[in-house]
Design a protein around this nucleic acid. Structure first.
Lengths: 112, 112
DNA sequence: TTGCTAAACAACTACATGGTTGTATAGTTC
DNA sequence: GAACTATACAACCATGTAGTTGTTTAGCAA
């Protein structure tokens, strides 16, 4: 063990990347964003995002496989909801980075 | 304003997605992971990751454009380093999610 | 100057995947 | 039963991009 160094194994690296990639798509972020309002059916998400049914369904399969969302079937409808809130922790950190970039850029433009 | 709801605009959504996508690639995570050890030249990263020069260079351009890494040129060499530590906050949250998934799965297999 | 090295850049190939169209399945209502 | 609806699934196309090869630029050394 070389002192405190936590080397991520290629395997874990791939798992992490797979999940980041899932979030690296505006369509899927839009779905998650809408689910922040609460449970929604596929139809709700189609209306809310303006995407096609098959497309929404496909994105939901992936989000569900990676456990970003939970499903509950009731009658004809399937209700999707956020599996947990950690997604937004991730987005908040990312937004913070973007805010910093913007601030930084503003300083450069202003010539500070 | 509809009570406390923070709707992400499509524009911001795209910015966030762009950054998640950048992290959604094992090769780039491997670079960032190595940089955790400290500043490194492109050559160091080539050796450390086993990737080709042009490939490493291309990934670095993206990481730099999105301000994940900083550059410093000295003589023939360009030294890259982490722009800040928030990348690892992101990875830690993701790893936590993976750990949960695994634990969850273990329970299912064990039939709890 | 010439030669050498590190890094960036350009062009290309191959593969992954987002979005669509069409179909199949499950559950409802009549 | 038949007809209808919500969702999933399969097949396809078009775009994006990771990785390669080859070239170019920048800095050092003779």
């Amino acid at each position: 063990m070389s002192m405190g160094r936590k080397k991520l194994t290629p395997g874990l690296l791939a798992l992490v990347a797979e999940r980041f990639k899932a979030l690296g798509e505006p369509a899927r972020l839009a779905i998650l964003n809408q689910l922040r309002d609460g449970e929604a059916t596929v139809s709700d998400l189609i209306d809310g995002t303006g995407m096609g049914q098959a497309n929404v369904s496909k994105h939901l399969q992936l989000l569900h496989a990676l456990q970003f969302v939970a499903r509950r079937k009731e009658g004809l409808f399937v209700y999707y909801s956020l599996a947990d809130e950690s997604v937004f922790e991730l987005c908040d950190v990312m937004c913070g980075r973007i805010a910093n970039e913007t601030r930084e850029r503003g300083r450069i433009v202003a010539g500070r």
